[in-house]
C-alpha cells in the first residue's frame, strides 16, 4: 500500500478512508475538547484510521475502539502519513 496520496499535513476530515494516519496536532479552539480527545487516546503521535463516513460525521478507529465524531471536530485534528511523522 502506498502513502503517496496522503498530504503531508491534512486534517482527519480529509484523511483517506481505511488508512492509518498519525495525529500531529489538535487545535480545537475549546481547550476542554482538545483535552477530551487526548484522553480518549486521540493524542499527538497516536495512530488513527477513518473507517466510515456518515452524514456530516465519521467513524474512526483509535487503539481498539471505534469513535464517532463530527466533521467539524475532525477538521481540527491535523494528521500526517506515518512516515512523515518522524520529522514532526
Amino acid at each position: 500500500m502506498t502513502m503517496t496520496n496522503v498530504q503531508p499535513h491534512t486534517t482527519l476530515a480529509n484523511a483517506p478512508l481505511g488508512r492509518a494516519v498519525r495525529i500531529t496536532r489538535l487545535h480545537h479552539p475549546r481547550k476542554e475538547i482538545a483535552t477530551r480527545l487526548r484522553e480518549l487516546g486521540m493524542c499527538e503521535n497516536a495512530l488513527i484510521r477513518c473507517v466510515l463516513r456518515g452524514n456530516g460525521n465519521m467513524i474512526c478507529e483509535v487503539q481498539n475502539m471505534r469513535i464517532g465524531l463530527d466533521n467539524r471536530l475532525a477538521g481540527s485534528i491535523m494528521v500526517t502519513a506515518p512516515e512523515e511523522a518522524g520529522t514532526a
Binding site: R30, I33, R36, L37, L40, N57, I59, M65, R66, I67, G68, L69, D70, R72, L73
Partner: peptide, 12 residues
Amino acid sequence: SSVPVFLMELPE
C-alpha cells in the same frame, strides 16, 4: 451556546 461537538465511543 457554542456549536455542539459530537464525540462518542461506538461499542462493538
